[in-house]
Simulated scan of single mutants.
Amino acid sequence: MSDHIDHIATIADADSEAFEEDVIPEASQLAMTHFWVFALVALAVLPWATVPGKRDLGWVQEPWSWPFITLSFGLIGGFGPLRAYLRDRRKPGFSAKASLAFEGMGRAMIYALGFMAYIAGVAFLGFTIASVIFMQSLLYISGLRGRRWVVTGLAVVAVIVLAFRVGLGIWFPLPPVMQLFPDWVGNSLGEYL
């Protein structure tokens, strides 16, 4: 047995100076600039993305108030890295170092796109069918491809559907895909799909 133990990064390591040395300033500036632009766009569409509350409880409890406050603080706090990015972006080698900000994000982007497809699929296929497809896709992408994982994924979806439908009594409208089948299919299975 080896006496050598590899060091695994922990939350406590984030406070150490050695951890800070691993952060590439150009990559940090680029990532912060992306977040800053996202916060600016989110703040710009906030009036159309929220509706007034149904009860008059004061501005602090309006649906727009806390997103407005946090996005504003994000814009103020991110202004320094944005200025640094705008100042340094034309330096030689900046873009090569900055591109490291998104290194290794391919799989995360695949999961994010899969989740967006799942949300769109719920509207057309219904909660159950979209959930089965999404769960099986996640398992496949993760490399969990054996029969045991297929059955586990189906069981998890069944438990979630029963929890929503039976336990919580949450029912969704009949999915549009049911219009492709005879009426008896929608009448007998529609409420669980």
Rank of each mutant, 00 (worst) to 15 (best):
M1I: 09
S2R: 14
S2K: 13
I5E: 13
D6S: 12
D6V: 07
D6A: 15
D6C: 08
I8P: 01
A12S: 13
A12N: 10
A18N: 12
A18S: 14
F19N: 11
E20F: 11
E20K: 09
E20C: 05
E20Y: 09
D22R: 08
V23H: 11
V23S: 10
P25A: 10
A27D: 03
A27N: 07
A27H: 00
A31K: 01
M32R: 01
T33Q: 01
W36I: 03
F38Y: 14
L40W: 05
V41S: 08
V41F: 13
A42F: 12
L43W: 03
L43N: 03
L43R: 02
A44N: 04
A44E: 07
A44M: 13
V45F: 15
W48G: 05
T50K: 09
G53W: 01
R55S: 13
R55C: 04
D56S: 12
D56P: 04
D56K: 09
G58I: 06
V60R: 12
S65F: 15
S65D: 04
P67D: 05
P67L: 07
P67T: 05
L71N: 01
S72W: 09
F73G: 11
G78R: 00
F79Y: 13
A84V: 03
Y85C: 00
L86K: 09
R87W: 12
D88A: 13
R89D: 00
R90N: 14
K91Q: 15
P92R: 11
P92Y: 06
F94W: 10
F94C: 07
F94Y: 15
A98K: 00
S99D: 13
S99K: 07
S99W: 10
A101Y: 00
A101V: 02
E103L: 11
E103V: 06
G104N: 04
M105K: 05
M105C: 12
G106Y: 10
R107A: 11
R107V: 05
M109Q: 08
I110C: 10
A112G: 07
G114W: 00
G114E: 02
F115N: 09
M116H: 06
M116W: 13
Y118Q: 03
V122C: 05
F124K: 05
F124D: 03
L125T: 00
G126T: 01
G126H: 01
T128I: 02
T128Q: 04
I129W: 01
V132F: 14
I133R: 03
M135G: 00
M135T: 02
Q136W: 13
L139A: 04
Y140K: 07
I141L: 15
I141S: 10
S142A: 15
S142I: 03
G143Q: 10
L144Y: 07
R148Y: 09
R148E: 14
V151E: 08
T152R: 03
A155Y: 09
V156S: 08
V156H: 03
V157P: 00
A158N: 06
V159N: 08
V159G: 15
V159D: 07
I160S: 02
V161N: 04
V161I: 11
V161Y: 04
L162R: 05
A163T: 12
F164T: 02
V166Y: 11
G169L: 09
I170K: 09
F172V: 02
L174Q: 04
P175V: 03
P175R: 03
V177T: 06
V177M: 04
P182R: 08
D183E: 15
V185M: 14
V185N: 12
V185G: 08
L189Q: 03
L189W: 02
L193K: 00
